[in-house]
């Protein structure tokens, strides 16, 4: 049976297609202003990559903040359940999932059979999310992929004291005006994000094994800093940004 998972995130929309649980194809497009349009586009790309027709899909689950805008999905499931399910499928020993997405971050606890037993989400601001990094990259006139590499050169990271993204951006600009090295500022930004995630993780309780998902898991500096802070090995799936969609496709297979 062929199933699809669609994860409509604030920044990107991801689709994963499975046949009897086996990965057939995937796609990732920018979400933009049209949730449904981006889901259609990502689904078209994913079906092409999988070499199937859209009508071959037996069951489809939508997740992510834009899940409610996908009328052709058979069911809508939150990203908490989908990331939990996806991470557990990749690493069955997973008991804690840390997902840092574009506009929110979550820590999810799962039990031995893979059920979500508890979760915590960031409060209602962008600090501790991918959006925070995006805004700062723009202020520093560098690209997101460059950030992690530059941060690793830092010897004396600065302290970013503002948790509000807008004020933190002003703080960054003021550090630049003081002539502080860019790498120290960027490292400071990474530390600030990790502060937020670490606090959430410790509040919920971290149980081994810990898997990191979401687009920010591609940032090596964040992963290294978080690993150091939590004193835990962090498991990284091959394409962490697709784990929500993967989990959705797995749930679709169960519910078809």
């Amino acid at each position: 049976m062929i199933t699809a998972g669609i994860d409509v995130g604030s920044n990107t929309t991801k689709v994963v297609i499975l046949r009897d649980g086996e990965w057939l194809g995937d796609a990732l497009v920018l979400t933009g202003a049209d949730n449904r349009g981006s889901a259609e586009k990502a689904l078209a790309q994913a079906t092409k990559a999988a070499g199937i027709k859209r009508t071959d899909i037996a069951h489809c689950v939508a997740t992510g903040y834009g899940r409610i805008n996908i009328p052709f999905a058979d069911r809508k499931i939150t990203e908490i359940s989908c990331h939990g399910r996806g991470a557990y499928a990749v690493f069955p020993g997973t008991r804690t999932v840390i997902d840092i997405g574009g506009q929110d971050s979550k820590v999810i606890r799962i039990d031995a059979p893979g059920r979500v037993v508890d979760f915590i989400m960031n409060d209602k601001c962008a600090a501790g999310t991918g959006r925070f990094l995006e805004v700062m990259a723009r202020a520093l006139e560098i690209t997101l992929p460059e950030m992690a590499a530059i941060a690793s050169k830092s010897k004396n990271p600065v302290t970013i004291s503002n948790t509000c993204t807008v004020f933190a951006e002003s703080e960054v600009i003021s550090y630049l005006a003081q002539g502080l090295p860019k790498e120290d500022i960027i490292r400071g930004l990474h530390e600030a994000i990790v502060d937020r995630i670490e606090s959430m993780a410790l509040r919920l309780g971290v149980e081994q094994e810990v898997t990191m998902t979401g687009g920010v898991a591609l940032n090596k500096a964040i992963v290294a800093t978080l690993r150091k802070r939590l004193k835990q090995t962090l498991l990284l799936p091959p394409q962490p940004q697709l784990i929500g969609a993967y989990g959705a496709a797995l749930i679709a297979a169960n519910q078809a």
Partner: peptide, 9 residues
């Protein structure tokens, strides 16, 4: 999302 996740839990 928080409410729905709780109900899924």
């Amino acid at each position: 999302t928080r409410l729905e996740s709780f109900l899924e839990l």
